[in-house]
Design a protein around this nucleic acid. Sequence first.
DNA 1: ATGAAAGCGCTAACAT
DNA 2: ATGTTAGCGCTTTCAT
Lengths: 342, 342
Amino acid sequence: MKFETVTIKDIAKALGLSTSTVSRALRGSYEISPETKKLVLEYAEKINYRPNPIALSLKERRSRSIGVVVTEIANNFFSQAINGIESIAYNRGYHVIISQTHESFERETVTIQHMASRSVDGLLVSLSNETTDLTQLKQLHDKGLPVVFFDRITDEIVTHKVIANNFKAAYDSTMHLAKQGCKRIAHVTNSPHLSITKERLDGYKKALEESNIPFDEKLVQYCYHGGMIFAEIEEAVGRLLKLKPRPDAILTASDRITISCITALRKEGIIIPNDMALIGFSNTNLAELINPPLSAVRQPAFEMGQVATELLIQIIESKRPITEFETRILDTELFIRNSSQK
Amino acid sequence: MKFETVTIKDIAKALGLSTSTVSRALRGSYEISPETKKLVLEYAEKINYRPNPIALSLKERRSRSIGVVVTEIANNFFSQAINGIESIAYNRGYHVIISQTHESFERETVTIQHMASRSVDGLLVSLSNETTDLTQLKQLHDKGLPVVFFDRITDEIVTHKVIANNFKAAYDSTMHLAKQGCKRIAHVTNSPHLSITKERLDGYKKALEESNIPFDEKLVQYCYHGGMIFAEIEEAVGRLLKLKPRPDAILTASDRITISCITALRKEGIIIPNDMALIGFSNTNLAELINPPLSAVRQPAFEMGQVATELLIQIIESKRPITEFETRILDTELFIRNSSQK
DNA sequence: ATGAAAGCGCTAACAT
DNA sequence: ATGTTAGCGCTTTCAT
């Protein structure tokens, strides 16, 4: 089964011209006579000619496509970020190729390799929960592949980065809980090597300190699979509930973690917010409909995607190597609803 | 900024061989001596050679990628379907390129054109809410571009199709509502030209008939933007609430419509399920957490994606044109929760 | 067992 | 203003 196709050659043959003349006419070159141009354009239109992007890529040594590496698209934060990425990319004439790691380092490695072998002009990366080894990305970046990190970034590669103000988000949320009178505020979060984990943990600690609440290591539960496995969250919640005194609030660090925590708490018969106040990082549009309505930190996912894409295209299209890089920090929004109201 | 790269030529030069020998050695051709093979393979490994997929595509006149056209990825049904698509595609060595229509016919046209211009080997399509004109797709299909439809299909193109059993899903849901004693069951659904709309409407009507409830045109509200615009749903709900007698139940036809309906009903102070029972087509994993827990029809999105991809790859890889096509119908699941319990 | 050459579709330097 | 040619990276006949 093959797909018939019209090439420049066909046009040239039909019109008794050379392929280069046709090519030039098609791109409106000034050295082609108006009559020839008209002839070619009309014939091309008539037979519905479309340039072959693959041949173009080979020639120009660029594909006008950018690769996006995220955990999963079935996730409010990432799907919104991808919408932001697309909104910019398509306007600038770039295709977007999405691939998912499902929080697996191995899948991340394979997919990056695949994309990098010259099929993309640049990469937009949000690291997986498992990733600690950045050798591969570092090598590709050193070889000249433009890379921009967003959300889950790394110190090991010097390039543009885009993040939410996780420190402030965690700080504000924790402060809110403290002001509600919570004394034992737990934090269920991603794996400790993720940048967002550190940023949020720091904000959380700062708020505790300012509220004169001692930091307790046991109140922080790390989830190495980022909530991809429900049992992981269930166990984390189980450990928290066994503590004496038991925590009276939880700050959860991602959509999946938030939802799983609520589910786990319900299974244990814990009432939110009475037994346990809760604020979650979540970009769901169902926060209002949940019982009780979910207090949530909403990240500017769409804007993060947009900014990251602009920065990436800037690198891709720059004539000379870029040496000055920036880390953009975008503000989050805290929506207080019933789940955190004691 | 360009990306340095290693080609077969580099290997050939370094080893004093011809490019064809290197090419053959790399692909393990039997006509190359074991020593040469070893030499080439080791050197290739050492300098981290990766074949250029673009050059390959040009040569083989195929890209080993398939295009997916959906409404949006920030949608439980579609993101799950895409996971199914990927799970098959990657195993079979295909890239997946995703693009969104956001329910716009124009965006659908542009994106299909882009993908079709030989950058994809086949298309997996779920039509937009606005689409009535299938000329473009028909032309591409006639020219030999393999296309498989899923979920939102069309009669106008003869090919493989994969759908959920929408008739049965709507029938069962409506029957359940009728058995709860509901007498005035409304249906808020997508635009009338969508295949899923017709299938669901038929199931709904059949159930009414069997329950001896007269069909009332005014109880069916069509949403031409499929819920992409909240006001559309709000107005539909408003019209329903003005009817006398007022409906006592609603069957909603998609994730967005369901969520928006619940939101609109709340704004009007309507209590679910007491004032209004509700069952929604939805693949959200938050159904349990919503207040009240949402009775939902869950579509086998992941499996639908898998089946559609298998069928597409079958067409792509078939030596001879396929003439026998099938429409696979997959069963849905109905989860009864509180929102439909009178 | 290895190499030379052509060709996939397109563009651009270099003729004319 | 138009044509000829080479080349992007790779595979594959056709020689040798």
